[in-house]
Design a protein around this nucleic acid. Structure first.
Length: 466
DNA sequence: TCTGGGGTCCTAGGACCC
DNA sequence: TCTGGGGTCCTAGGACCC
């Protein structure tokens, strides 16, 4: 069996751990530049604010419901994620970290009852980190994902009842029935009690026996299946496949034709056959991208150069961290497509004579590319650097006639990385990055870096003490 | 005023090889 | 008059994930 552990509203939960006053308040966390809402507490979801909504569109709702707003604080979230993952590793030798807030925990060889074990994991993560998690357990990754959806619904029912209109808890069939019958929500909720009382409770769901599988998939909308995106969901719905159960039982030939092999794998996984293997030791990335929107429009080449130099430097750091060298350096700029006015976007890709991980080489290539694509008279919104054709440093292939004496790694970069690891990113940087960045990202609501900055440590006041 | 960032995999079609 | 068959590699674009 495989358990999918998913942190609930992860970024919001991180904020709450260090500011308990947020506990019973609706909370949102914003994307870079404070642009969109990328994380919502249960209360906010219940208000119907969608993932990815631009902040300026819901200003009034935020006022009205006293929603707490935070800029994203990736230093904090990254550290909290690490703590959660370390805790999980105590429960199984095989933990696959899938994203910042999710991990597959393999329970093969673990004797305990899966439900009890999952409940213990949940309680321990909560005690060690303060982060609430949901666990879905099933024989394949896709079924574990499905079980997790069920576990989350249950959890949400328990925590957000004061905000209700729990429309999002039910699948569309039930949503429909609900408006038709006009039944009070509580009555509706009783109808959807778990298949077997013990298998779904308190943020944990186990989907194992054939009947558990069928009952779970029957109440899951087809778009909620892992691997089915909005495009394919529309195709499936047009063909009458509206639930995960109908997808599971669909004709494989037809699926192959309509959704390619990716779809076939998903269907087989729903049938209990493992197609997505465990991946405990992730391969290095095949491509590295660093880009940011600007806090305000940028028109001058010099400012773009500083931004591109910064992205090139950070991309190179990431490259060195995974011990790769890049063969191709690409740079891109674009204007704001949401705005009136002349639009322009372009990219340039340069091939390095020898694959390199050196900041100076990559930075020089990126700036060269930028000067090639820059056009005056445009208000740029975003710039970025992309590294491709990556290979392990040890195996870097020089071109036949290139000079061979190029060093594999520069002592300068090694020092730069060491200093920045210790004193923080960008402590030491190339002069091309510059100093004042009026175009820098906006983060007006950022919380302190509680766990990674001495100066930001939370202070505990004991009552009665000064 | 204000609209994120970073990835992967698959396929079709073109270019090319013998 | 007649114009094969089989293969690889690369890339752009689409779809998905968080």
């Amino acid at each position: 069996m495989i358990a999918l552990v998913d942190c609930n509203n992860f970024y919001c939960s991180c904020e709450r751990v260090f500011q308990p006053a947020l506990e019973n308040r609706p909370v949102v966390v914003l994307s870079n530049n404070d642009g969109c809402i990328v994380a919502r507490s249960a209360e906010v979801k219940a208000l119907g604010i969608a993932m990815g909504t631009p902040l300026f569109k819901v200003r009034e709702l935020i006022q009205k419901h006293n929603i707490a707003v935070r800029s994203s604080n990736y230093t904090l979230y990254g550290d909290m994620s690490h703590r959660v993952m370390r805790t999980l590793e105590a429960f199984s030798p095989d933990v696959e970290i899938y994203s910042i807030d999710e991990a597959f925990v393999y329970l093969d060889g673990i004797r305990a009852d899966p439900y009890d074990y999952a409940a213990r994991i949940r309680a321990t993560v909560s005690r060690h980190t303060g982060i609430p998690v949901s666990l879905g357990v099933g024989p394949t990754k896709t079924l574990a994902k499905a079980a997790n959806k069920l576990a989350k619904r249950r959890h949400a029912t328990e925590t957000s009842n004061s905000f209700v209109n729990n429309a999002f808890l039910k699948n569309s069939a039930e949503r429909q029935a609900d408006t038709e019958t006009g039944l009070p929500l509580d009555a509706v909720r009783k109808k959807e009690e778990s298949p077997t009382p013990k298998t779904i409770h308190e943020g944990v769901a186990v989907v194992n026996t054939p009947s558990e599988q069928a009952q779970t998939l029957a109440v899951l909308d087809v778009e909620d299946v892992w691997g089915v995106g909005p495009r394919n969901a529309r195709k499936l719905r047009r063909a009458g496949i509206t639930t995960a159960l109908l997808l599971r039982d669909a004709d494989l030939q037809w699926i192959r034709k309509t959704l390619t092999v990716t779809g076939v794998r998903t269907v087989l996984e729903l049938r209990g056959q493992r197609c997505f293997q465990a991946d405990m030791t992730p391969e290095p990335n095949r491509q590295i991208v660093r880009s940011r929107s600007f806090g305000r429009p940028v028109t001058r080449l010099e400012e773009l150069e500083q931004a591109v130099a910064m992205h090139a430097g950070r991309a190179a750091e990431k490259l060195r961290a995974q011990k790769s060298a890049a063969g191709l350096v690409s740079v891109f700029v674009m204007t704001n497509r949401h705005k009136q006015g002349p639009q322009y976007g372009n990219s340039a890709t340069l091939k390095l004579a020898i694959p390199s991980d050196a900041t100076d080489t990559i930075l020089a290539a990126a700036l060269k590319g930028l000067r090639r694509i820059y056009r005056p008279g445009y208000a740029f919104k975003k710039a970025g650097v992309m590294l491709m054709d990556l290979s392990p440093v040890a195996a870097a292939q020089p071109m036949l006639f290139a000079e061979l004496q190029a060093p594999q790694s520069s002592p300068l970069d090694e020092t730069l990385d060491a200093v920045n690891r210790r004193f923080g990113s960008q402590t030491l940087r190339y002069a091309a990055v510059g100093f004042d960045h009026p175009w820098a990202m906006r983060r007006e609501h950022r919380s302190p870096q509680y766990t990674t900055q001495w100066s930001d440590l939370p202070i505990v006041k004991v009552s009665g003490s000064p």
